[in-house]
Design a binder for these strands. Structure first.
Lengths: 221, 221
DNA sequence: GTGTAATGTAAGCACCGTTCACATGGTAGA
DNA sequence: TCTACCATGTGAACGGTGCTTACATTACAC
């Protein structure tokens, strides 16, 4: 009971609300998601959702969780196990494409201070994180896995957001894709040439020891 | 008249509203900015702001513009002309620090689909972009300047957002800083080793041609 | 069958963005 | 200097929002 599958008066309103919310996000393209609007869409009184979600944020978290799952699917489809720069670029393109194709959902997923209480949301986030971490480990076997995964995620995530916010032109999909590819490749290449300058110390394993004379400790939380 | 300096009944309400908005953002830490709340803070009727800004978004754009200026200042203070990995890391840390210290303002600046009409906002954005571009050009003289600047901006921007959204723990400031440094360094170092493997094709200018044989069609849902 | 807890409803609260008719007052032109 | 004008601020109002509370209904356990 109270479980997801149960069907009382309405027939699993809990799931119907998430579905309605996703539809509204898809249609209105960008704007805010009103709980009353979702209820209206589901053909139910404005107070009905409160039987299933404590507040608007909880519903949004459920919606975000669906978004995380669909995002991981899309990334896996783009490339199941990326290891070359081209593979990485393909996954990056898929990530940004997701943000561009479903901007409203993407904003629900990443736009606001998220509900740390939603275990559903936390789990879905962890899945994305794990996927990115796996990529990092495969692509850069000799690096600090956690640092690399966050760096890669950040690069891709930032590209997605800058396009979404109009800081980078995203009118032409293929243009966006090529820009993402170029960015990834360019950063890799340029980093290589820069590293050549700074190779007083050996590259590729200095996450633990001497670093680059800059940061005395690598992490700590 | 209607210029910024003019002082009518209230004495430059236009600027006072922006000031009040910034104060509220600083205090409430995160939440949304209500136009009525800003008016209240400025000691003025809820309808008064409409004499100076056509709607809430316009006021928010003015606030965002201030944020952009302060961000560029902070970056310049962190390092006026970064060119080494350490320099870049220092600027990256400053960027993320800004987002962490003033999360509400940062969200106003980057959180929503921005007002393309606001020339003030556009100009301030351009300033940030130019600064990042200058960094890229100085640090990677032989690279594609535009691609590099977007890549770098994206990396840093993504780091800021992931911390802000709780995807990365940001409870300890020094921990955040060291993580940012580590991420930047690790990406540079690992990219270098990876680039050594994949140097079959020339890196840094394959934006238009090659593609990746990955996604035949971009969408269809 | 009946009782009970889960589910949906209706009405209402305080707040929001926005508009509009109106009051006020600084300044330009006589 | 007086006056008219127009920029500025006010107050009330409209529809919308999130959320709560009292009430109606309905499915299932016994």
């Amino acid at each position: 009971m109270t479980k997801t599958g149960a069907a009382y008066h309405h027939g699993d309103l809990r799931a119907a609300l998430v579905r309605a919310a996703l539809e509204l996000l898809e249609e209105s393209g960008a704007s805010e998601l009103s709980l009353r609007g979702v209820a209206r869409r589901a053909g139910v009184a404005p107070s009905a959702p409160y039987r299933h979600y404590p507040d608007r944020d909880a519903l949004l978290s459920a919606v975000a969780a669906v978004g995380y799952r669909e995002l991981t699917e899309k990334l896996a489809t783009a490339h199941p196990s990326p290891s070359t720069p081209d593979d990485l670029a393909a996954v990056a393109v898929a990530y940004v494409e997701f943000a561009r194709q479903r901007p409203a959902l993407f904003r629900v997923m990443f736009g606001g201070p998220c509900d740390r209480d939603s275990s559903e949301r936390a789990a879905a986030t962890a899945a994305v994180s794990a996927y990115v971490g796996a990529i990092a480990e495969r692509a850069f076997p000799q690096g600090d896995k956690e640092a690399l995964s966050t760096a890669i995620w950040a690069l891709v995530h930032g590209l997605a957001f800058l396009h979404l916010d109009g800081k980078l032109d995203s009118s032409d999909p293929s243009g966006v894709a090529s820009r993402v590819r170029t960015s990834v490749h360019a950063l890799i290449a340029a980093s290589a040439s820069l590293a050549a300058f700074a190779d007083a110390e050996p590259m590729g394993r200095q996450s633990e020891d001497g670093s680059l004379r800059s940061s005395p400790r690598p992490r700590n939380p």
